[in-house]
Computed example of a mutant assay.
Amino acid sequence: MAPLLALSLLVLWTSPAPALGGANDAEDCCLSVTQRPIPGNIVRAFRYLLIKDGCRVPAVVFTTMRGYQLCAPPDQPWVDRIIRRLRKTLAKSKRHSS
């Protein structure tokens, strides 16, 4: 299911970022985001790519267990649920490693 999901979603695209007072060679930005929920159990990490970062489309980029990077809208409840679960898992693993 993951390969089919990855094919149906737009992955990252490298595009030049506008110069905002710094020497930013290139920024990975999403050209679009999927409105279809991504199964949370295939996600291992996330990061934000926002307009303030030089991207035209604000997105949360989820990295799957297989290394795919999927772009999702940051304002969707299903995106928030995945992020909360990932943060909870990370906090739990930090407590156990201390």
Rank of each mutant, 00 (worst) to 15 (best):
L31I: 12
W13F: 12
R85N: 12
K52P: 02
I38T: 14
D25N: 11
P37M: 04
M65K: 11
I38M: 09
V33D: 00
C71P: 08
D75G: 08
C55T: 11
A26Q: 14
D75N: 12
P18V: 09
D80T: 13
L90C: 01
L70R: 00
P58C: 09
A23L: 12
F46E: 01
L7V: 09
S32F: 03
S15A: 12
P58N: 04
S97C: 05
P3L: 05
R87H: 04
G22R: 06
F46M: 01
G67P: 06
Y68W: 15
K88Q: 10
T34N: 07
A59L: 11
Q76E: 13
A26Y: 13
R36A: 15
D53W: 05
A19T: 14
I42P: 02
V11N: 10
A26V: 14
T14S: 10
L9F: 02
P18I: 07
R56I: 10
D75A: 09
D25L: 14
R87V: 00
L10Q: 09
T64C: 07
R56L: 14
A26M: 05
N41L: 08
R47M: 05
V79A: 03
A23Y: 12
R36D: 10
S15D: 09
S32E: 13
T89R: 12
S98H: 09
A23D: 12
L12T: 13
L31R: 15
G22K: 10
R87M: 01
W78F: 15
N24Y: 05
R85M: 04
I42D: 08
A59V: 10
V60C: 04
L9N: 05
R44H: 07
L70C: 03
P58G: 02
V60H: 06
P77H: 14
C71H: 10
I82P: 00
T63G: 00
